[in-house]
């Protein structure tokens, strides 16, 4: 059902018997895609690997500088800070977001009336969440005189400048990501639909309580979808950019507390035109995401349950 399941199946499948080939027709149909692969996706991936070993500022031709970009990373404190910020963001916001998504999906399942209304209400933030407009709103809400502090004031609580305080700035972005739990929730809902109701009926006849049912039926049968959501949301969270950019006016501040990795990459590449270093940074990001995904796939063997 999912791209990830498809990839797992591909890697497991053995060669199928040869059939009649339509190489010519296939080539024509795939021509645009093929050009895109060479020029827009795979080609640039390879090019940025090469550029990562050069010094390049767009004006002079790139100059090979060996491992300099990579050794420079070791002493680059802003890079370390951006890694720290990004890891925190990913490791806190993704589990919270998925927990909210799963919890709500389970509440909404099982023939609740008004399902489509709730689903829409919870899903809408997922569509709006990545826009500049919502980032503008966030900047107001969590500002020193923003909406949150007005509300806290009603209860006599003294607020603070949530975005201007380095201790809390990142939390406001985590809240924003959790706010967009609607998309994984819809995926969970579709997954829950696939679990036959008779499993629960049988379990309940056997005297299993709700919690046991959740642990023994829902979790194992939903685990491929949980896995899928986890992989996807982690990859997605690593790439977050817009919100941090708008909330911090492009600086990653205060005190680099919202300096997402992608934001730092943008600054190096497109503010400083330090293209060689930015390419090396891009490749590091790719390696980090690949490593996270690989660990996820490895760990999946231990907890993801495949019916077939």
């Amino acid at each position: 059902m999912s791209a990830i399941g498809e990839l797992q199946r591909l890697s497991a499948a053995k060669g199928s018997p040869p059939r009649k080939r339509d190489n010519k027709a296939a080539f024509l149909f795939l021509l645009p895609w093929f050009a895109g692969l060479v020029l827009i996706t795979a080609g640039p991936v390879a090019a940025s690997l090469l550029l990562g070993f050069t010094d390049y500022n767009l004006l002079q031709p790139p100059e090979f500088n060996g491992l300099e970009n990579w050794t420079r990373m070791l002493g680059d404190e802003r890079l370390h800070q951006s890694l720290l910020v990004t890891f925190k963001y990913v490791l806190i916001s993704v589990p919270l977001q998925l927990a909210a998504a799963l919890g709500l999906a389970m509440l909404l399942d099982r023939g609740l009336r008004g399902l489509s209304f709730y689903r829409s209400a919870f899903y809408l933030p997922s569509l709006l969440g990545s826009s500049v407009a919502i980032a503008v709103l966030w900047r107001q809400i969590f500002g020193a005189e923003g909406l949150l502090n007005q509300l806290l004031d009603l209860f006599g609580i003294q607020g603070r400048g949530w975005i201007s305080d380095p201790d809390t700035a990142l939390s406001t972005l985590i809240v924003l990501n959790v706010w967009t739990f609607g998309a994984p929730m819809v995926i969970f809902l579709a997954g829950l639909r696939q679990i036959p109701a008779m499993y629960y009926e049988a379990a309940s006849v056997d005297g299993a309580g709700r919690f046991t049912q959740f642990r023994k039926i829902t979790l194992p049968l939903l685990s491929p979808i949980i896995f899928f959501n986890l992989v996807l949301q982690i990859i997605h969270a690593f790439q977050s950019f817009t919100q941090a950019f708008v909330v911090s006016a492009g600086t990653g501040g205060p005190s680099d507390s919202t300096l997402f990795y992608t934001l730092y990459l943008y600054q190096r590449g497109f503010n400083n035109f330090d293209m060689g270093y930015a390419s090396a940074l891009a490749w590091l990001l790719l390696l980090i995401i690949a490593a996270f995904t690989a660990v996820n796939f490895w760990a999946a063997k231990k907890w993801v349950f495949y019916d077939d």
Binding site: A3, D22, W33, P44, V45, L51, T262, A282, L285
Partner: peptide
């Protein structure tokens, strides 16, 4: 359609779904 190395191309296509734009933006 059936064509040479279809699985390889298909796998490559699926792989690009997960490719972050930041990795390709500089050369692009």
């Amino acid at each position: 359609l059936e064509f040479t190395a279809k699985k390889l191309w298909f796998g490559l296509m699926l792989g690009t779904i997960m490719l972050p734009i930041h990795v390709i933006i500089v050369p692009q």
